[in-house]
Design a protein around this nucleic acid. Structure first.
Lengths: 234, 234
DNA sequence: TCGCCAAATTACGTATACATTAATAAATAA
DNA sequence: TTATTTATTAATGTATACGTAATTTGGCGA
């Protein structure tokens, strides 16, 4: 049974084989974000190992990585604890992301990017507008994420990008859950257009100002919803 | 030879035994920051394991943690690569820390901390002034670090604190090396006093403005020195 | 000499064995 | 019965074994 290395694992794709450690990171992260592993619950290494069909070694390594990313906490004889996202946590994360996105907007505005660099952000905005017309909130949220991620990319600060990637999943989780509880996000689209325009024309101060306002408001609303609907144990 | 678990490892201290994994993280981090492991160099797992007198398992786990912290990069058949801090890297880190410290200043100013909460920051400033009188630059740098760390603590955003902790070592490394190349930092002390005063009196905008200016200038100088003296391979 | 292919080596990824130690249960004394 | 100590159990931390894949070496042909 050991070394049950199923070679022909995936029927079609030619994807290179990822080490189990990172596979475990992906799966566990997904299970945490989709709430299959409930926040607050504890899981022994052996349990997760058998759950994922691998030995403890890669699972241990995965939990260390997830711990570094703030998704779990490893407590020696009690297993890895899935951390919750309380309104306080979300507030903290939003504060960090707000500052870093604004920094990205500022940096992006000073960089004189060639026009084609903005196509990703522009498409994201277009998709957001289309999604609103379709009243497809999921599609809107996905496009919105794309815009934010493009913004950070345009800032070209790798540290910012890393931190953004680290927290973005957790924000997505909360965002998706509150998506239908919030007003139709028409203003977001306007804001994003303005920010992008300011970046393109090199007005870093305008970009920062508009985006900061946007973020502060979005953050406030999200946290209020989380508080009202008690999603902190989700 | 296996299980050479030297129980009586340390003669005096009663310190709780830390798992080797984290011991390895500490030692390796220290060796990287003190340049005993040169930036750019590659080290095989087995090499590090014998260097640290433990098996590959905890070393592997340690490298994963260090990778998450951005100090090394694990490249499968080429060992763990010790990452350098180029001027570009330092610029990036400074940009991040600048924003997050300013955020902390803003948050701290809105929190109505009781006076005794500020004693740490005040002492740091006092020590900085005393160090300047003594012309003890090392002591000054240490006190300066303490001020920044206090500032972040006062912001009470755990995510910010985590990110700060993650990068602060690397900044220290560069700071210490450029300490004697820079002008006497009298202005820093003034700036810090002003920031602290603004925080205490709840003027978050002033605190942010002063601190941002301070950081931008400090960052610019540090990066210039790094460029001039080519410490990117340190 | 320079490529190129095969064999050998090496390093990694992963499973597993085992020692350690925390947590739990059991047993004893007050 | 309750507190305390001891024995048991279980989970972790670490070493090690080993298969696999990448790299290097050596030989062969052009």
């Amino acid at each position: 049974m050991q070394n049950a290395n199923i070679k022909a694992a995936n029927e079609f794709s030619v994807q290179k084989k990822k080490p189990n450690t990172f596979h475990a990171v992906d799966i566990l992260k997904d299970m945490i974000l989709s709430n299959k592993l409930q926040a607050g619950s504890n899981h022994l290494e052996a349990e997760l190992a058998s759950l994922l069909g691998m030995s403890r070694t890669p699972v241990r390594e995965a939990t260390l990585i997830l711990e570094a990313q703030g998704l779990v906490s490893v407590i020696p004889r009690h297993g890895v604890k899935i951390l919750a996202i309380s309104p306080k946590d979300m507030t903290e994360i939003y504060q960090v992301l707000t500052e870093l996105e604004c920094l990205s907007a500022e940096l992006a505005a000073t960089k004189n990017h060639p026009d084609e660099e903005f196509s990703g952000a522009e498409n994201a905005i277009k998709d957001m507008e289309a999604a609103l017309l379709d009243e497809d909130l999921e599609a809107w949220a996905i496009a919105d994420d794309r815009f934010h991620s493009e913004l950070v990319r345009l800032g070209e600060n790798q540290r910012v990008i890393n931190i953004f990637d680290m927290y973005t999943d957790q924000v997505k989780r909360a965002r998706m859950l509150t998506l239908r509880l919030r007003p139709i996000p028409t203003k977001s689209n306007e804001d994003h257009r303005k920010v992008l325009q300011a970046i393109k024309s090199g007005q870093s101060d305008v970009a920062v100002k508009v985006h900061k306002e946007h973020r502060v408001q979005a953050g406030r609303m999200l946290v209020e919803l989380l508080e009202k609907f008690g999603l902190n144990n989700l």
